[in-house]
Computed example of a mutant assay.
Amino acid sequence: MTGIENVTLQQVIVHKVGNPSRNEELKFSANALTLNDDVVSAMLTKYFLSPFNENEHYHFTHLSDLSMNEVYTYVTNIFEDSKSFNEESIKIASFLYSKSTHVKVKEGELYVAVFDNVMLGNETHKAVGLFKSETKETFLKVFPHGQSWEVIQDEGIDINKLDKGCLIFNTNQNEGYTVCVVDKTNKQNDTRYWITDFLQVEPTANDYHNTDQYLGLCKLFIDNEYAEKFDVSKSDQVDLMNRSMEYFKTKDQFNMQEFAEEVIHHPEVVDTFMEYKQQYQKSRNFEIEDEFDISLSAVKKQDKNFKSVIKLDKNFHLYIHGRKDLMEKGYDEMVGKKFYKLYYEEES
């Protein structure tokens, strides 16, 4: 997230949230942290906010009525009355505790915080943050002992690794606020309690979301379905991956029909892709539009996942950026090994 240095951390309180299925406790703090150390406040602000992608938005939901979403209601009360901060933070911790029953959910500290002057687009907003620290790091502490120094082992939090986070901006309240989410642990479907059970948020279908999800869909399709259902080589997969990314890098708008004609080409592959897209959307419980403006931020994020590499045993890696017609693949019976033949004009 950008502009962190201008953010004001106004309030923070910490509660201990265990897993009730293991008889771990829920412990409340009586008071918020005393924020009279500017260095500590700056470190906390960086720890809380730096992992967020401000372009990737979610919003609170509920099957029947948005006001029945617990976290949405507690956060709204904090926005409307700052004096309710401690009371509402206890409600938030209690609700998280009730949703932490899966065997893989770890005990940890829940931080509830209030920020001001948080950047969203070209505007700044007040925001409420919910953060959970589950992973402890071992470190060595050096301290003086008489005329010497001693070293002991201790455990603490790595301020560069936020496990779980949710940042709620005080905007678009009627639509479930604008929300950013981090979930670095328990990513399996059966343990995504932070997003689905606790927060009950869904992605906001903006240009960033559509671009990001379509590229993710293409990557999974090429890696799995395309390779499994069609007689294609690794170089064919890389070629389709390159053409897909090139489309998103060079176009301003996405159009599914145009993408199918210019990138996928073959009708039977297009049909299989559309079937895979339906399964992809159903499994994630959201839809991706077939026409939208392409987000360059989402393209940049996904670009690093589109690795155009063919790994040959443990000896060679071929990085392919285009011109599949300048490659030949064969088998040398004399040597008893497969080979690639590459045509080029000059080397550097």
Rank of each mutant, 00 (worst) to 15 (best):
D271R: 10
H266A: 11
N86D: 09
W194K: 08
Y343E: 13
E328T: 09
R323Y: 10
S244E: 01
L342Q: 06
F143I: 07
S148Y: 04
F169M: 09
Y193F: 12
V71P: 15
L63Q: 14
K126V: 07
L96K: 08
K324H: 03
Q153V: 09
V151R: 02
V232E: 07
H145V: 12
E24K: 07
D154N: 15
Q281Y: 02
E262S: 13
E80F: 02
Q173F: 01
P51K: 04
F339V: 05
E261C: 06
N36L: 05
V40I: 12
V75G: 09
M274L: 15
L120D: 11
L326H: 10
V40F: 13
N186V: 01
E155Y: 11
D303V: 03
T73S: 15
T124H: 04
S41G: 04
K219F: 02
E225K: 13
M327A: 03
K99P: 12
T45E: 05
F115N: 08
N206V: 01
T171C: 05
L167P: 14
L63I: 07
I159S: 11
H57P: 08
E175G: 04
P267C: 00
Q213G: 02
M119D: 09
E291F: 06
T101I: 12
K249W: 00
K304F: 00
A113N: 08
D332K: 07
A227T: 02
Y111K: 03
Y226A: 06
S98W: 00
E333H: 11
S84Y: 03
E137N: 09
Y276T: 11
K251D: 04
A42K: 13
K329T: 08
S133R: 10
Q279R: 11
V71F: 02
Q213S: 08
K311Y: 02
K161N: 13
